[in-house]
Write a protein that binds this DNA or RNA. Sequence first.
DNA 1: CGAATTCATGAAATCGTTTTCATAATCAGA
DNA 2: TCTGATTATGAAAACGATTTCATGAATTCG
Lengths: 328, 328
Amino acid sequence: MATIQDVAKKAGLSRTTVSRVINEHPYVTEEKKRLVTQAMQELNYVPNSSARRLRRQQTETIAVYVPRITNPFFSHLVEVMEKEAARKGYQLILCQTRYKKEQERNFLELLKTKQVDGLILTSIENDWSEFEPYLSFGPIVVCNEYSDSAQVPSVYLNQIEGSYLGTKHLIDQGYTKIGYCTGNHKSSRVSKDRKIGFLQALDEAGIMMKEEWFFYNAYSVQDGFAAFKKLSELDDKPQAVFTGSDEVAAGIAKAAFDAGWKVPEDLAIIGFDNQPLAALMDLTTVEQPIDTIAKQAMNLMVEAIQAKKPLSRKEVILPFQLIKRSST
Amino acid sequence: MATIQDVAKKAGLSRTTVSRVINEHPYVTEEKKRLVTQAMQELNYVPNSSARRLRRQQTETIAVYVPRITNPFFSHLVEVMEKEAARKGYQLILCQTRYKKEQERNFLELLKTKQVDGLILTSIENDWSEFEPYLSFGPIVVCNEYSDSAQVPSVYLNQIEGSYLGTKHLIDQGYTKIGYCTGNHKSSRVSKDRKIGFLQALDEAGIMMKEEWFFYNAYSVQDGFAAFKKLSELDDKPQAVFTGSDEVAAGIAKAAFDAGWKVPEDLAIIGFDNQPLAALMDLTTVEQPIDTIAKQAMNLMVEAIQAKKPLSRKEVILPFQLIKRSST
DNA sequence: CGAATTCATGAAATCGTTTTCATAATCAGA
DNA sequence: TCTGATTATGAAAACGATTTCATGAATTCG
């Protein structure tokens, strides 16, 4: 492996000048620039990035936290982020927290040990106080999830509004017995707010909710199957169900279909996210502008890294959209 | 930021001893070990990974190439790889090539500039000769895709067998007019072999194929819609269609359903991958053992990095499985 | 008991860059 | 022509770890 020293020797110049050429500093004559470029080419030289990182104290790498990359919502988020990051000369390190507090904390070391310039969180398992101390090591940006105590920029949607929008739609369609089937993840603000919005819509319409119409821990298609099974065994069944994701909605729809139920006549279903799956299953759903969330979060991050200033609290709140299909 | 020097001073010892404690070298008395540990704690010291990388000449980071992370096949692959890598103390850098030759080549710099210890390719756009020169910078492992000229380990499935298996199944069900709807990506060996296996099955059964029953560039649900539209406008329509992915199959199934067709009576459909989507849409499909592919590829990579020996050609070929559902 | 190991530590070299500082040479303005 | 800025270059000091080499002390062995 050729080093900058080798190039310098070959070109008959100093390391400094070579470095200047590499980094496009001014004050290098065309003549020397040519010499250096040629020497670099002949030696097949490439700057060693570890050395550069050490000296520059920056890594041009950003860590992105997701629970699991196979969740389409998060893979979409990551796809856009990676694209945006690459465009700006940054790499992405993928951190799957698997909904585990400890996993999430482990990855924090990346920031502390200077392996990444910053952290983007798309989900939050731990209390914000766990993150707080790491802010001195580099910027953190929150997106999708949010926390009132987080003193960093957050790009998110007002999930109260989102679930209100979806629930209101069900109510407007005339349903009065409405089930609620979501992950209801304890540490998630998104979960909490969704529930608030849901209840708020019911409340405004003067509609009652029954304890047995809540179905929790539903994340996947499989969970949707299970939820339907429970639902179908109730004496007093809901006429419609609000879900936390298109996967769950799709699972319920499929199970209902297999059981000979008609959607929406026997059971109306509303999904969340508007993924390709929703179009496929003809599910009404609440759309989240994933592309925009991802881009904005990444932009804030790169800005923060380059400004080298600590980030302050800042909220970017984006709007939802209802996509009406035949499941409601 | 505290450095190793600060710790050494605080503990009244040399950098060397501190380093020994950090790296668990033998030959340090318990007494000094305690002193160092305490000093590290008090100073909130963490080793700087850039410095460590520079000295050690390794990064504990692996780059994974995928076309797009939103493709469920690849996100599944990456999920398992990340898990496996984390378990072994490695990080993953995500590289989305977006099916572009140039993007793919750009990411090669990561290896050359020593930002990663190795490369795992799950898709290949460029000719192998483009990768060849980079082998001197670190190990490369191919998985899913494969190339005869690649002198590195490859973990893959014999796609000729896979599509043969699926096509044979359609033939066994009595279909004689069979369409073929895949990506048919030019640079992909997978694509080529799938077609070979398909034609082979037809050939063995003495079945004729019509040019108009080939539908190419189909990757997504959306593409499935389009393919069905074309198919349905033919005078002589196929009775069954072999597809390259569950998404495409699902798209066709949905479009067919919307058009009032019955599956499989009016059109039989077989997918590929056995993703959650396939269960949802009740699609017969050819299953690929994604978990195993991912794990094996990652193991080979870590082994290669740690052995520090150049990798030689080696093939790990895994088996397919047919999942029969109601779409055929 | 002397020689050969093994254990324990530190000084200094090293990894490959970028940055600071110093020094000339050139140029512009009075 | 002198002064002060601008341009062009290199020597040497960082960046923060690990590793080599040297050296003594303690232990084992014949």
